[in-house]
Each structure stands twice: as structure tokens, then as C-alpha cells.
Design a protein around this nucleic acid. Sequence first.
DNA 1: GTTGGTGCAAACAGTTTGCAAGGAA
DNA 2: TTCCTTGCAAACTGTTTGCACCAAC
Lengths: 151, 151
Amino acid sequence: MEDRIERIKKLLHTAGYKLTPQREATVRVLLEHEEDHLSAEDVYLLVKEKSPEIGLATVYRTLELLTELKIVDKINFGDGVSRYDLRQEGATHFHHHLVCIECGSVAEIQEDLLEEVEAIVERDWKFKIKDHRLTFHGICYRCQQKDKQEE
Amino acid sequence: MEDRIERIKKLLHTAGYKLTPQREATVRVLLEHEEDHLSAEDVYLLVKEKSPEIGLATVYRTLELLTELKIVDKINFGDGVSRYDLRQEGATHFHHHLVCIECGSVAEIQEDLLEEVEAIVERDWKFKIKDHRLTFHGICYRCQQKDKQEE
DNA sequence: GTTGGTGCAAACAGTTTGCAAGGAA
DNA sequence: TTCCTTGCAAACTGTTTGCACCAAC
């Protein structure tokens, strides 16, 4: 945790920014909720619990900054809010998501899975891929079981 | 074109809706711009050229309706606006997109490409896939050529 | 007459911005 | 001092909603 913050601090410094208390508080919330996919509002409320003086705009600005530095990824599952997801350290590619259309849960897939597909796209469409977004919409295991019981 | 409208009319009727003049005008705009990825505002302005009395809310309501009936797909490239994309007739899966980070152009890939990946996800994550969203961000062929010249 | 659909304006939600003030180098 | 950064409120943007009115059956 602490070493992770330290490395993020370095990344900020290299880019000419400081790790202010507000930024640190925001990063800590993201680290503590790595599994979740928090919206800016979610992050704001969580940060506020420990640093009540923080403003929503600061959270937005911090998240934007972190996105720019590729420390977090901004995602959009089509529900009108942006969500922020900490990148795995050293990850070159963005991970994928499984969104359950029944319960709304979001699971992550860290495996690449797209290597072959990307090779095909780069070759056949002559498109130089820099990043990707892959989301599957469907029914998670838990909801499948629940649905089966109800039948 | 006309037969395509006719089939959409049937789809609406089956679901208990009418193809009003406003809805037809909206569908026509979508058909005439199948290659593009229009936002609701874009659609509104284009419909307005031929049916100046139409209201923005009606366009939104129509697009929502068409999305619900899976005649169009609502997509989001992360720029804050929803875009609407006519589904290929008979398509079971949503097509993929190549978004150029230099010129902003969006190309479509109709090929599935994900069959294998989906089989793996369904097997290993026990997730029942219903739909997917795959977007590659990178540099299109045209911009690659342009960049090369400028070097 | 009932029902569904429309246009308008107002409301809303998420996000961004202007600005005066605070704080570190 | 100078330059970032912050908190607040206001502004903005895209989208949704309430409501009176209209049209079709």
C-alpha cells in the first residue's frame, strides 16, 4: 500500500505535479476499493469520510489527472456515469469487464485474451492499436443459479 | 430502403408501437447515415432539415425505443455523448469499432472475431454472454501515412 | 372518448470552469 | 514572489420528464 503510494507520488513528480493531501486521500480510496468501479461521486463520498473538507471538483480534477498519467482508467458502462479503475501496475493493456445485466455486478478479467484478435485487426485493417475496451454483458454465475432455483 | 422501413414498421407493430411520421423521419436519417455514428443531437439536426417541426425530446424517445427493440445500438466512445448505430439486419452480435485517437474517425468491423474469446469466458468465468462491446483505440491507416510524411 | 404520441419548457445529473484564497518553494 | 492547487458556486451539456394538446382508431 505505502510503497504503491510512493510510486504514484514519483509518477506525479516526474510529470511535474505534487501529491497533495487531497490527491493522496483520493488515491488511497482508489487503492482501498480496487475491486470496485467507483464513480466520481462514489470516490468523493468515500474521500469525504476521512477528509471532510475536500471538494467534489478536486476529486474530478484528481481523477482526470490520474487518467492522463494512465494510473487509472476511465470507463463507461453506458449508465451515464464515468467510473474509475486503477490500472494494474505494469499493465500494458486495459483489462476487460463482465457486467451482469441482472444484478449489475462487474467482474474483471485481467488476462489479455485479445492478442490474436489484435494481430488480425492490425494486419487486416492496418490499424495501429494503442488501447482497447472490451465489456461483456450477460448473466453472472450467481444470477444463473438464482434463476435456476426460481424456475 | 423502403423494404427496410417496412420491416422496421412491422417490428414496431409487433411490439405495440406505431411508425409515426416523426419516427419514420428519424429512422430514415439513421438509414441514410448508416456509416456514421450519430449522436442524438446529430440525428435531431438532420431530421429537422426535412421535418422542421420535430422536437428533440421526440428524437430521444424514438432512439430509446429503437434501442429497446434492438433495431439500433447505443454506444459510448467516452466523449460524453451517446451515439446510435443501426444494427445489421439479422446480426446477433454487436459489431466492433476502431476509433482513431488522432483524427477521431470511427470504422466498423462486422466480423465476429470474438467467438473463441467468448467460449473461453463462458467456460472459465461461468458467465453467460448476451452481448459485448469491443472498441480499439489507436491510429488509423490514413493518420499513420500522414505521420510518416511529417517525419 | 380513450389511447398513444408529440412539442415545449422546465428539471435533472454529471461534469467543468472561473475565481479568489491558500500554501509550498 | 511565483506558481500550483483548492473549495465553492455558477455554468454548462446531454438527457429526461411533466404536461397540455393532438391524432388515430
